[in-house]
Design a protein around this nucleic acid. Structure first.
Lengths: 339, 339
DNA sequence: GGCGGGTGCGGGAGCGCTCCCGCAACGATG
DNA sequence: CATCGTTGCGGGAGCGCTCCCGCACCCGCC
């Protein structure tokens, strides 16, 4: 009769096989102190022989811990996955999470407006905590975020007011913009411009702010700017506009490597030599920066480290510790051939 | 006293608020047939007012359904994330999963040998099913795989024998290799070579097999080959070797776009013009194929569709349906400037 | 008018686990 | 020798849910 499906062993079964009670078996399995070594041994053998594995649902029901955390990306999948930034930060997150044994649940928006549905998931007790990375605009409203009953860590500075008790991890975007300005100005070039990211995103805003501050420090004009949206195509378009409006341009800071590849294409299409005629500095230092032609001088942000830090910050909160409200990672200049 | 944490409402609370019993409330919430419309309305209002959300652990405990599936990647994170293939297939998987409401749990190997640990996770009742994508070699042993008690779908043809009851989804790699051969031969070039992927992987093997078949059909020699490992650097190295050994080369099929970018760099470094001196055909049609210099002629494989199909196949199995043991997606030639 | 079948609902049991409490045995302490 | 704390263990309760069973009621039938 019951030969069809050999029901998976339960704690009861294990306890019986080891000749102890449920409670004792539970204690032995969870490594609690008040158990004799012989008993532990007997229980472990029973576990092994029966191939026992605790039922996670039952355990969660009583402990109120799920052993998993969510990574929320309120961006539609298509946009997201074309951006190498995401893969890199995800890599850091999985690495940071690994030692804790927590599992990662991926919550990715399919349609704009899925945000609130995701939040209701977070409120449903499925996860112990959440990380929200909104590399692109943060389109979750603050009220809804405030209702999440579990710890939340943000990847990237939130756009509006800081959410109370919701720490974030970000790169020093402004500092990076300044580094780019210093480097270009340091080569003796004086007519400099920038291609910005979207100005409704912190990464776009802050890099521009940093750039402008740098220009001012060198007493250079900061009027040559063109806006892009972090895609390669927009980089090419912006480069074209910049060249048309400022024919005397000597150097350009492009707020992302992806846009920089577009800019390089536009420049090479016009027969403009890099860096001889115009120097180019990118931002990110993603994999393909070094394989561009010419290899891209860029501002490196530690994307993978940011991911790891996001995960570790969440783990700290799960442990009841109170993390820094903001953790800003340093950026650095990586000097290659383009500037 | 209990003002500190307003315990989340339970089904019992909702039932009381609606003036019905637990059972009836449960039926109303789950949309079961034998409930009067007025009762349904009353329960729904209570749910709304109390902000009730069913405890997933309790539900799972009795239904034995978790509502989540795992994506297993027995590759260390570092290797994986540098490969745009993964992001694309992941995008397809999330899209395919979305309509079902199942959540995605990401299981990513941190160290070589984590495979069996992952399998024990799959055996532990955490998920209803699993997808294993081993874009790189399948290093999970068949015995262990066979013990997974939930439906499993494989992304990519398994290396050894087919696992019984474990369907897979793959691109027509051999067909793609043949397409490349036909295209290059069709341009009148006769001295052709290939840069292969790793030959311990189906994607590497099958593309080479297809290429060779195509060469034979055109009565051309298929002896000019060099091996790579799907990275850009290995593409450059292999290209160099191929040029040294076969100075008369007129065209080359590179088994991945990433390797092709490396090959293009090597060619441009030697002052060899593409496609005038040597024509180049890639494989994948990833985003950057169109922005390479020159834009890459390549074999497109529907990576995102593969992801979606993997997810849908798993969902079908969860529904009790028996899927095709193998689903092979077509590849096609995308003609750009490099060949 | 008695009777069968369908409709709407309530109560109990139980999923597998952890945690609290209580109890026996033992060594140490006065 | 009586007392007390400590160690190791067992049993019961309960986490929040679904599902089975049974009960009351109403409709339509012979």
């Amino acid at each position: 009769m019951e030969s069809t499906r050999p029901d998976p062993p339960t704690l009861q079964t294990v306890a019986a096989a080891a000749g102890v009670s449920r409670s004792t078996a539970s204690r032995a399995i969870n490594g609690e102190p008040r158990v004799s070594p012989e008993t532990v041994e007997a229980v472990q053998r029973a576990v092994r022989e029966l191939g026992y594995s605790p039922n996670p649902a039952a355990r969660t029901l009583v402990t109120r811990r799920t052993g998993s955390v969510a990574l929320v990306v309120p961006e539609t999948g298509d946009v997201l996955f074309s951006d190498p930034y995401f893969a890199t930060v995800l890599s850091g997150i999985t690495a940071g999470l690994a030692p804790s044994g927590n599992q990662l649940i991926l919550l990715i928006g399919q349609h704009p407006g899925d945000g609130n549905q995701m939040i209701s998931y977070l409120r449903g007790g499925h996860v112990d905590g959440a990380m929200i990375i909104s590399h692109h605009r943060a389109d979750l409203d603050a009220d809804a975020l405030g209702k999440i009953p579990v710890p939340v860590v943000l990847g990237g500075r939130p756009v509006g007011a800081t959410l109370p008790g919701m720490p974030y991890v970000d790169a020093d975007n402004a500092g990076g913009g300044r580094l780019a300005a210093h480097h270009l100005a340091g080569t003796g070039r004086t007519r400099l411009g920038t291609i910005t990211g979207p100005l409704d995103m912190p990464a776009g805003i802050d890099r521009l702010d940093g750039w402008r501050a740098g220009m001012r420090e060198h007493n250079l004009a900061d009027d040559a700017t063109a806006g892009g949206d972090f895609t390669a195509a927009s980089g090419a378009t912006a480069m074209a506009r910049l060249l048309d409006e400022h024919p005397d341009l000597q150097g350009v800071f492009v707020a992302s490597d992806l846009m920089a590849t577009g800019a390089l294409q536009e420049l090479s299409g016009r027969g403009i030599r890099v860096p001889d005629d115009i120097a180019v500095v990118g931002f990110d230092d993603l994999m393909f920066a070094s394989t561009a032609t010419p290899p891209l001088t860029t501002i490196r942000q530690p994307t993978r480290e940011a991911g790891r830090l996001i995960a570790e910050t969440l783990l700290a909160m799960l442990d009841g510790r109170t993390p820094e409200p903001a953790q800003i990672l340093p950026t650095e200049l990586v000097r290659r051939a383009s500037a």
